[in-house]
């Protein structure tokens, strides 16, 4: 079974998040493998261990994204494709999905595993758009994944519990961040990752045209800081009524 896992390098969630002058996310500080993607890699590796085959990483980003790819290779993925091109800088979700789809399509995988959303942009739109461009059934919010023969089955997390959703492969699965604890890489894994193939492809290699972004961020403002609440003094008479009224007005009770 060939499994493609999408991975992304993101600014370290433990560092303060910044924007560049053009309102795109600043990527020049500390960067890490997206923690959600690490869970995707873990699922890919478990499926490979259970069913055989290979785990191929596909990423889009600057050259520097190799660092994040190498982290995922250290965990045990077999090889990687990095889509990198100056034309893709600041790409919106549409362009991102089309570029990833072009790279993934040429791999003809049985299964594509994505995180539900990235830690930085958090649009959550790339996995469904990717499935659409690739023409694959999509199984989203998966917190459990199983493969039986040529069928993939997931537990699709809902507010109340989960739905069991199945699809024939090839298919795309978007997993939740809590699906599995990413494994610790061994020193051997870390050393082996240095010799694994990371192939880079550009827009021209993929035969891709990059349209102008359909959406740009024009301005960013801080959320209004929280106002001080009303303090109700307990005067032994009307305090409870006042609090009840406030809670009802807030539709809490």
């Amino acid at each position: 079974m060939k499994i493609v896992v999408t991975v992304k390098q993101v600014p370290d969630p433990n560092s303060p998040q910044r924007l560049d002058a053009d309102n795109t996310i600043a990527r020049d500080g500390d960067v890490v493998l997206d923690p959600g993607d690490a869970c995707g890699v873990e699922i890919g590796l478990r499926l490979k261990e259970a069913h055989g085959g290979e785990v191929v990483l596909v990423s889009m980003g600057p050259e520097r994204a190799r660092e994040a790819i190498r982290k995922a290779l250290s965990m045990g993925a077999d090889r990687a494709v990095l889509v990198t091109d100056p034309a893709l800088e600041g790409a919106d979700v549409n362009t991102t999905a089309r570029a990833l789809a072009a790279a993934i399509g040429s791999e003809s995988p049985d299964l594509v595993v994505c995180a539900t959303e990235s830690y930085d942009g958090s649009t959550g739109m790339v996995p469904p758009m990717l499935a659409e461009v690739l023409g694959l059934p999509q199984l989203t919010f998966a917190n459990h994944v199983e493969v039986n023969g040529s069928t993939v089955s997931v537990h699709r997390q809902t507010e109340d519990g989960y739905q069991v959703v199945e699809a024939p492969m090839p298919a795309l699965v978007a997993v939740t961040a809590g699906i599995a604890e990413p494994r610790y890489a061994s020193l051997r894994g870390i050393m082996a990752a240095r010799n694994k193939e990371v192939r880079t492809v550009g827009v021209a290699d993929l035969g891709l045209e990059v349209p102008a972004p359909a959406e740009t961020v024009e301005g960013v403002e801080d959320a209004p800081s929280r106002q001080q609440g009303e303090i109700v003094e307990d005067d032994g008479a009307s305090g409870v009524e006042r609090i009840m009224a406030l809670l009802q007005a807030a539709k809490v009770i």
């Binding site: 982290k71 250290s74 610790y184 890489a185 020193l187 870390i190 050393m191 240095r194």
Partner: peptide, 8 residues
């Protein structure tokens, strides 16, 4: 590689 091992 040592630093990566360190983080794990």
């Amino acid at each position: 590689a040592h630093q990566e091992l360190r983080l794990h």
